[in-house]
Computed example of a mutant assay.
Amino acid sequence: MKLKFINIILITLLIFNIIPISICLALEDESNSSKVDYSSDEVKKEFKDLLENLFAQRNAAIVSADTELLKGFYDLDIKVSLWAYESEAKKTQYLINWSEKQAVKFKDIKSIVRIRKVAEKEPNLYGVICDVATDFNYYYIDSPETINHFRLGTNHYLNLKKQEDKYIITKEWYTDPFADSLELKNLKSEEIKEYILNQNSPEYTPSEKIQNAIDYAHKYCGVSEDEEFTFKYNSNYKDHNPDGGDCANFASQILFEGGEFKKNSAWNYAGKAGTKAWLNAQGFKNYMVNSGRASYIAKGSYEQIYKAAFNMRPGDFVAYEKKGRITHVSTVTGFDSKGYPLVTCHNTNRLLVPYDLGWSNDNIKFHLIHVHY
């Protein structure tokens, strides 16, 4: 009874994104008699292939815009599996809604898996911890020949149950890139769609400093397309995700390591620790603007700023406000074929992702900030 109560509390906290997956995994280990074991390379390869195939089929549900296809991957008679399905269906529907607003269609979605641990919890039931990098390829409806691309990173803990000749998901927790926004309410989608379709990617050549900042961001974002760095951060810095988030730390690194911004007493990092202006999203935004190192382009809801966003350039950043506080920052590192700003960041790792994807709720305000290199 006690174990059942602990699991219910864990699942509830995860659903509302209150505790990070690392804590959940530790508690899960505490509450199960069978701990997750390190696995041989052969076993990891077997489960890597298995999960990449499973995710490929699940990704097809997004491409086909059919959430019913998801049901086959879950045991809907098990409550936690049903919750996992319902959560995944909601996220899939969000992506479908976002693509409608954006006037795009997904061409294909592919996931790369790195297995960290595998354990047999009981006969035919396996616990798996893995990192996933998922590539999204999309095109605008008026130019299907031009393919755009972004990558999202997620960390998963799954229970997989073997049933006859297939595996189904009986439990799934993962870092959710859309946890902050799963709704698109009251947007004038047709007006937005028409405006976006009428844009073109600007002719732009970055300065050497800005190019170095872009290169640093793409190398250490945690989902680099360079296989050597796909699941890596810069080891010279502490990963502050377990402390509440690493987004400002990474944005600061981009400016310092790539853009050659000099540290000072207010904005500083040393010995795996940093000042509030370096590590905190609100502190970082305030410092950059108040110090004169950056200035505002626009601020407001998505409908209020989406036109101004086309004035952003690589090296600038977007700060996201919820309930009066800046909770996240992302650095612009490119454009898609319509000149739509693409951001790269930590927390849930992103590489060249449309800046509003996952930040669409009507209670979110965008701060578009131009950085003076």
Score class of each variant (00 low, 15 high):
Val343Tyr: 06
Gly245Val: 03
Ile214Lys: 11
Lys110Val: 07
Arg58Met: 15
Ala217His: 09
Glu120Leu: 01
Phe250Thr: 07
Pro177Arg: 11
Arg325Glu: 05
Ser330Asn: 06
Ile364Trp: 02
Leu51Tyr: 12
Lys35Ile: 14
Tyr233Cys: 02
Ser34Glu: 07
Ile169Ala: 14
Ile254Lys: 15
Leu187Thr: 12
Ser291Lys: 13
Glu203Pro: 00
Ala65Thr: 08
Ser31Met: 11
Glu42Met: 11
Cys345Glu: 11
Lys105His: 12
Pro341Ala: 14
Glu194Asn: 10
Tyr220His: 07
Phe178Asn: 12
His218Ile: 05
Ser34Met: 06
Phe284Leu: 14
Pro144Thr: 05
Thr344Ser: 13
Asp246Arg: 01
Lys45Cys: 03
Ile168His: 09
Gln163Met: 07
Lys117Arg: 13
Asp356Thr: 04
Asp66Val: 12
Lys2Arg: 12
Gly153Ser: 09
Val128Phe: 01
Val332Thr: 09
Ile326Gln: 07
Gly283Phe: 06
Lys338Arg: 14
Phe317Pro: 07
Ile168Trp: 04
Leu51Ile: 15
Ala319Pro: 04
Tyr220Asn: 08
Ala89Pro: 01
Ala217Met: 06
Asp165Leu: 12
Asn349Arg: 14
Gly339Ile: 11
Leu82Met: 06
His370Cys: 06
Lys166Thr: 15
Asn17Arg: 04
Leu182Lys: 13
Lys48Gln: 15
Leu50Ala: 09
Gln211Met: 13
Tyr74Leu: 02
Ala133Asn: 05
Val318Asp: 06
Gly300Arg: 08
Lys219Tyr: 06
Phe335Met: 09
Glu183Trp: 02
Ser111Thr: 15
Glu303His: 04
Glu145Asp: 12
Glu122Met: 03
Ile169Tyr: 05
Asn290Asp: 15
Lys107Ser: 10
Phe136Asp: 04
Glu228Ser: 08
Thr205Gln: 15
Ile305Arg: 03
Asp41His: 05
Phe231Ser: 04
Phe250Trp: 08
Leu125Ile: 02
Tyr302Pro: 00
Lys162Leu: 01
Lys171Val: 01
Tyr296Cys: 00
Val353His: 07
Ser265Val: 01
Gln199Trp: 08
Lys238Ile: 01
Ile78Asp: 08
Ala281Ile: 03
Leu50His: 03
Tyr287His: 05
Ser143His: 02
His149Asn: 14
Ala308Ser: 03
Leu368Lys: 03
Asp142Trp: 03
Pro341Gln: 13
Ala103Arg: 10
Phe256Pro: 00
Leu342Asp: 10
Ser201Cys: 11
Arg151Asn: 11
Glu46Asn: 15
Leu368Thr: 02
Tyr237Gln: 08
Asp41Cys: 04
Lys193His: 12
Tyr94Asp: 10
Tyr167Arg: 01
Asn349Pro: 06
Lys209Ala: 11
Leu342Ser: 11
Pro354Asp: 13
Thr175Phe: 07
Val36Phe: 08
His156Asn: 14
Leu184Thr: 08
Phe55Cys: 07
Asn241Phe: 09
Asp336Ala: 09
Leu255Val: 00
